[in-house]
Simulated scan of single mutants.
Amino acid sequence: MNKAIRTILIISLLAAATAMHAQQGLQIAGVFQKYSKQKGVTMVELSNEMLETYEMTLYKSITFKDAEEAMPYILHCLEADKKKARKVKEVMAGGEIESGYYQLPQVKEDINRFILFKTGKKGTATLIYIEGELDADDLVTMLFMKKN
């Protein structure tokens, strides 16, 4: 095998292993694995170039057009991961979670980890996992900055 191709293959495998390891130990990893290829579900992972722009090492989101069937599993996973969180902020409506922000303990120095969750109108739901050097203030600024 050509040395360049072998090098690219090894780098790709290491990147994939790092991404898989990133959510290791978190229940929400199961949500991404179980539902990412289902109809009506959109999963997004940012490229390295985009990650660097926002001081992230990993960004994964999964959006459900109709989350009714998946919701019990999603909520179960969030509840388990919430127990590990250092900071929890949730908005509840009618006893149900509308949105959640969870900052998890670092597993690597200077790498912060966040879980974001939001339900929308007509049964939609979005789950996001972010890892990187950005801190909570950076994340809030990024989420609420105005688009030009």
Rank of each mutant, 00 (worst) to 15 (best):
Q24W: 12
S12A: 15
I97N: 10
L75W: 01
V140F: 06
K60Y: 00
G95N: 04
K121W: 07
M1C: 13
T53F: 13
G94Q: 04
H21D: 13
A125C: 12
L14T: 12
E45V: 00
A125L: 11
S99D: 14
D138L: 02
N148M: 14
F144I: 07
M50W: 02
A125Y: 07
E79G: 02
K65E: 14
E133W: 03
G132L: 02
S47E: 07
G123D: 15
T18W: 13
T63G: 00
K82Y: 00
L9I: 14
K34R: 15
P105S: 07
A85L: 00
A19L: 09
Q106D: 08
N148K: 15
G40S: 07
L116E: 01
V88R: 06
A22K: 03
A93Q: 10
K122H: 12
M1F: 12
Q33M: 09
G100L: 09
L75D: 03
A93D: 08
D138N: 10
Q23Y: 09
T126C: 01
E133S: 11
E55P: 01
Q103K: 11
T57P: 08
M145S: 10
S47P: 02
Y54A: 11
Q106E: 13
L143N: 14
K60V: 01
H21G: 13
Q23S: 12
I28R: 10
L46P: 02
V91H: 08
A17N: 07
I8V: 11
T126H: 00
E133I: 08
H76Y: 04
Q38K: 10
Q103C: 05
M1I: 11
Y54T: 09
V44K: 00
F117I: 07
K65F: 09
A4R: 15
G123Y: 12
I115G: 09
K39G: 07
T124L: 04
